[in-house]
Design a protein around this nucleic acid. Structure first.
Lengths: 239, 239
DNA sequence: TTTTCTCTCCCCCGAAATGGTGAGGGATGG
DNA sequence: CCATCCCTCACCATTTCGGGGGAGAGAAAA
């Protein structure tokens, strides 16, 4: 089986997978296929849930979770601010904690080289697809140049499949807001006071309050700020 | 020049482009290359700035902006809620306004078929890469199946290049929030009152207020609700 | 070392937002 | 045609928020 055929085969199996385990199997096969030390996919959902699969050692994964490294890992922090896939060398490794983290990761078998692809979805979903390897800079540069596009596509296939399996996907489908409610919530969200919003919309402040309360009710929100947050994270309003 | 060579050539030219105009040129070439009626790239940043390029008629573009269709266009609304690329047929076209919009779009030369790829970046950036064509369902399904992956990659290349040229990129790079500020803003965003947040975090309400005000200052927000909205739309907090 | 940031605490008071309830005309959809 | 939603307006008392001060300890970065 040729290189491309092998890859297509793995991705096709993934596409038709019915169970979450298939992701773990596929990522191990892809790791072997690309001939790198590690390949990891990992996401954080809107409600703080996490899911990950990959080839890091159990010890490292446990340690990572135990130490809540997700909050300080320079790869996570750096990718969260970027759109593009990024080579680990280009991240900010200054700082005591970052260097200590790096040392610890390498002792746990993580490669000295890495390439991570950030992926974003609605409601603040953020996922990271990472390949890591132990080699010199030139070898790594050659590898990433050659496989960049494939890795991007694979990252997306993975994310798509992972989202399919996500349990808490579309449970709470909020009722859509009326046009006036959208106007009101949008202006509130950009910092206007109720008086300013009412003036902007040319309605009385009393009327405005009806919209806000109506929106709050529809969104199941506890107060105005909560309603704005919910409306934003569901894409009902945009600022 | 073969099909793939032609595409590679267009993308390579795009990659080395130094001016924003190159995007417009590239998208027209790609449209011709794929043999579709229209191809459009279009993004919205957190601060409301927009940029777009594509092959829609000037009349339609002007009309779209004039009517602020970006707020009601079912393609935008639908894609904002999704991660995956989506065929227009799968969007919600019920509702009077949506159907009227669709009719008007078609009279302006937009195809009856469409395929849109949502792309997201840090700080709430949201972009859409769309191909549209006039043909029957089967023809369109064949086309999208065959070109789905290529279109995803092209969408990313486009977005990458567009971000390079974006003028207002780094200016309003909000300072990151401190851990306690993130805690405070997150709890506020899920509807807690100041008193509840203070109790949850086991700090005095006075201290809590310092965090909120500090976050508000860092985010350049006018009030708490505004600060929550900004933090959310920049991905600094997640609910 | 010095500076800069973070985290924690405290005061006061006026302005603003909230929650509950009610009501009438108009548009839309089944 | 009738139910359902949308838009508009109004009053009440209570809770919450906003803005203005100031201060000390500790950690980390430059």
């Amino acid at each position: 089986m040729g290189m491309m055929q092998r890859r297509e085969h793995i991705l096709e199996e993934l596409e038709h997978a019915q169970e979450l385990d298939a992701l773990q199997i596929a990522i191990e096969e892809l790791r072997d296929h690309f001939g790198v030390d590690h390949m990891v996919y990992h996401w954080v959902s809107a409600n703080g849930d996490q899911y990950g699969c990959g080839t890091y050692s159990d010890a490292w994964r446990d340690r990572y979770i135990e130490q809540d490294y997700i909050r300080t890992d320079p790869v996570i922090v750096g990718c969260f601010q970027r759109f593009h896939p990024v080579d680990w060398k280009r991240l900010d490794w200054s700082g005591k904690a970052a260097r200590a983290f790096q040392r610890e990761a390498i002792t746990h078998g993580v490669g000295n080289q890495g390439f991570s692809i950030p992926i974003r979805g609605p409601n603040g979903q953020f996922a990271l697809f990472t390949v890591s390897h132990h080699c010199d800079d030139d070898t790594w540069a050659t590898f990433t140049d050659a496989n960049r596009r494939d890795l991007i596509l694979i990252a997306h296939e993975f994310n798509q499949k992972a989202l399919e399996f996500e349990p808490g996907r579309a449970p709470e489908q909020a009722r859509a807001l009326s046009p006036r409610e959208v106007d009101a919530m949008t202006l509130i969200a950009i910092g206007y006071s109720r008086a300013q919003v009412a003036e902007t919309l040319s309605i009385s402040e009393h009327t405005l309050r009806v919209y806000i309360e109506s929106a709050r009710f529809k969104l199941g929100a506890l107060n105005t700020t909560h309603a704005v947050a919910k409306a934003l994270s569901r894409g009902l309003i945009v600022i």
